[in-house]
């Protein structure tokens, strides 16, 4: 499909000098935008290579005048990054399992098993979308405390199954799978869990991959909520640990600070750049339907 043969502007428009100037200006504006997006990304990395005096100099430099890779070595030893990374991956894995099993099963049942009182149950799930999470953030905290889940991964894992947005996404995806596939599976004597794992799940890999992106980015990003319910180093995810020991600490040298920050920025950025084609497509699958 030739989507680019014309847009709002046709090739005829572009021959007019006034439009040409306008088009040129537009390109400049986009270019400036791209630079302001990329400059801070590079600066995180380069500042981690500078001497501390250079990071603090005015006016600031962009490229380091001398390269100090040993900053990264020092930064690696400053906090227990592998431990915190492991915690983050733990949280991600548990949240993902909950998403697949709890949300996956429920949406499969709502979509494909036609149980009585389906509508009522669906409202029970979906009405939670109308209640902004910040309005019950405090009772939520007290509730987890009452349940004795403080400083335990379960306090993050179990509520991960209570996601009405994911439920909606999965259900609408399952709705699109041909019903006859399940009918023939049932006639052949497959049990319902088997229908889920051997037919519904493999056919829904794209939507589960999208959910995995969402779940991963929240496990990697969330620092505030884990900092409330977790309270020891062997539980903190990366983001919370960085907030507590890097952002909130005054006396840490700026160059080391940036070295640590770049170490936790670049894994997701690199993964994103490699898989961006699939990720962007996946986000469209999960995003606002265009």
């Amino acid at each position: 499909m030739k989507t680019h043969d014309r847009g709002i502007l046709s090739s005829y428009d572009l021959k007019k000098p006034s439009t040409k100037i306008f088009y040129f200006l537009m390109i400049i504006v986009v270019l400036v935008m791209v630079c302001t997006m990329l400059y801070p990304m590079f600066v995180i990395f380069f500042n981690g290579l500078k001497l501390n005096t250079e990071v603090n100099s005015f006016p600031p430099t962009f490229l380091p005048s001398e390269v100090h890779f040993e900053n990264y070595q020092k930064a690696w030893g400053y906090i227990k990054l592998p431990l915190f990374a492991r915690n983050t991956l733990f949280i991600f894995a548990g949240n993902m399992v909950m998403t697949v099993l709890v949300v996956g099963f429920a949406s499969f049942s709502l979509s494909r098993m036609n149980v009585p009182y389906k509508k009522v149950i669906q409202y029970f799930f979906l009405l939670t979308l109308f209640i902004p999470p910040t309005t019950y953030i405090i009772p939520n905290f007290v509730n987890l405390r009452d349940l004795g889940l403080m400083n335990s991964f379960w306090a993050l894992w179990l509520p991960a199954g209570a996601n009405a947005f994911f439920l909606l996404l999965l259900k609408s995806f399952f709705d699109g799978i041909n019903m006859e596939m399940f009918e023939s599976g049932r006639i052949d004597g497959a049990s319902e869990p088997r229908l889920f794992f051997q037919i519904a799940f493999p056919l829904s890999v794209p939507i589960f991959a999208t959910l995995a992106i969402f779940v991963f980015s929240s496990a990697w990003n969330d620092w505030y909520w884990p900092s409330l319910i977790l309270s020891s180093d062997d539980k903190y995810p990366l983001a919370t640990a960085i907030y507590k020991y890097v952002i909130n600490v005054r006396r840490l040298d700026l160059n080391l600070r940036f070295a640590i920050l770049s170490m936790i920025t670049f894994p997701p950025v690199i993964v994103f750049l490699i898989f961006q084609k699939y990720i962007v497509r996946g986000l469209h699958l999960g995003g606002v339907k265009g």
Binding site: A106, S109, M113, G161, A162
Partner: peptide, 9 residues
Amino acid sequence: FLLPAVAIF
């Protein structure tokens, strides 16, 4: 299939 989700929600 619905039970865990109902309990967790």
